[in-house]
Structures are given as C-alpha cells and as structure tokens.
C-alpha cells in the first residue's frame, strides 16, 4: 500500500498503550491476513492500543478486539503522534 519511504513501522505489540497507529502491513499466512482484513483491520485503518502485555486489547472502528501476542506481532503499524 502507498507506504511513504520514510515512515517507520513497528509491530502492533510494540506500540505503547494509549497510542494510535495506522496499519501498514499485515504479515503472516494468507488465512490470517484475510481474516484481519475482513474484520475491518486492513491496511490504512487507524488502531488505538488500549492495554495489555500478553494478549492485547486494541480498538478499531469502535470495536474492541483482543489479539494474542502472535497476532499483534503480525500487524505492522506506523505510529502516529496525537
């Protein structure tokens, strides 16, 4: 997706709690990617990290989604300054 060359991405699990990020890339097997995208979590969506150290809670489009560590590692986001 239209990824600017200078933007820094990090895995969703590394995003600090309370920060907002924009999904840039989803890595992982095809089924997982498809489900992530179908749940409205696709590239260029905004995601707010709510909490968690093991499983994480994030908010996308007014829905709270719990992600395991593995899932959060596979979603790369560009952190946005509020």
């Amino acid at each position: 997706m239209n990824q600017a060359p200078h933007c820094v991405t990090l895995a969703l699990c590394q995003l600090p709690s309370g920060e907002v990020g924009r999904v840039r890339e989803i890595v992982g097997d095809a089924q997982f990617c498809q489900r992530v995208r179908e749940m409205g979590f696709g590239e260029s969506t905004f995601v707010t990290k709510i909490s968690g150290t093991g499983p994480f809670v994030v908010q996308v489009n007014r829905t709270r989604i719990a992600l395991s560590h593995g899932a959060a590692k596979a979603i790369l986001v560009e952190p946005l300054r509020r």
């Binding site: 997982f32 709270r64 989604i65 899932a71 596979a74």
Partner: peptide, 12 residues
C-alpha cells in the same frame, strides 16, 4: 501446527 493467532472481538 501453530494455534492461529487469536483475534477476538470484545463485545460491549
């Protein structure tokens, strides 16, 4: 086979 990464909606 690895458990697929869990992704689950938390309903209100």
């Amino acid at each position: 086979g690895e458990a697929p990464p869990m992704m689950m909606e938390l309903p209100p």
